[in-house]
């Protein structure tokens, strides 16, 4: 079932992430067909764990080692020319979710890391020497890594 079709009976559908709705094509309870919205479930959005496996992977990359210095000031996003055009690409946020290990959020946003044009402005303004540009490289490799993160 496509994402738009899922949970279309929920009145406030637009506030619910696609990934949180489970609505199988066919659902039966004791011989009674409850497919569609009768059988829809909406998963909670609570963060339940800090998974640091992704962070380890990023840190093992040559230019990703500085990720731990980040204190979330937002200078990188402020100056990033891509972020101004594409709000879904936010280097500060990517660094945070990888650092904390919010796996669902990483899963949702991991492809945005390829928006990075590699201009290096972020690294030039970072007050803590995180080298966000390098971290973005490390992340884009880590996200595709087979041993890393699923």
């Amino acid at each position: 079932m496509s994402d738009e079709e899922k949970g279309k009976h929920i009145v406030e559908r637009k506030y619910v992430d696609d990934s949180r709705i489970i609505e199988p094509e066919k659902l039966e309870i004791g011989g009674i067909d409850v497919s569609g919205h009768w059988g829809t479930l909406v998963l909670p959005r609570t963060i339940e764990d800090f998974d640091n496996s992704m962070l380890k992977k990023v840190k093992s990359m040559p230019r990703g080692k500085n990720i731990e210095k980040c204190w979330q000031c937002g200078n990188c996003t402020a100056i990033c020319p891509v972020a101004h055009a594409h709000p879904e690409f936010n280097p500060r946020y990517l660094i945070h979710i990888v650092k904390m290990g919010y796996s669902a959020e990483v899963e949702k946003l991991k492809d945005t890391v390829y928006f990075c044009s590699g201009c290096g402005l972020c690294s030039s303004v970072c007050p803590k020497g995180v080298d966000p540009q390098g971290v973005m490289i490390a992340m884009s490799i880590a996200f595709k890594s087979k041993k890393g993160y699923r």
């Binding site: 959005r45 609570t46 963060i47 339940e48 764990d49 946020y93 945070h96 904390m100 919010y102 959020e105």
Partner: peptide, 11 residues
């Protein structure tokens, strides 16, 4: 709540 991701956590 992690206010940077605007999400509640229960860890």
């Amino acid at each position: 709540e992690d206010t940077l991701v605007r999400g509640p956590f229960e860890v």
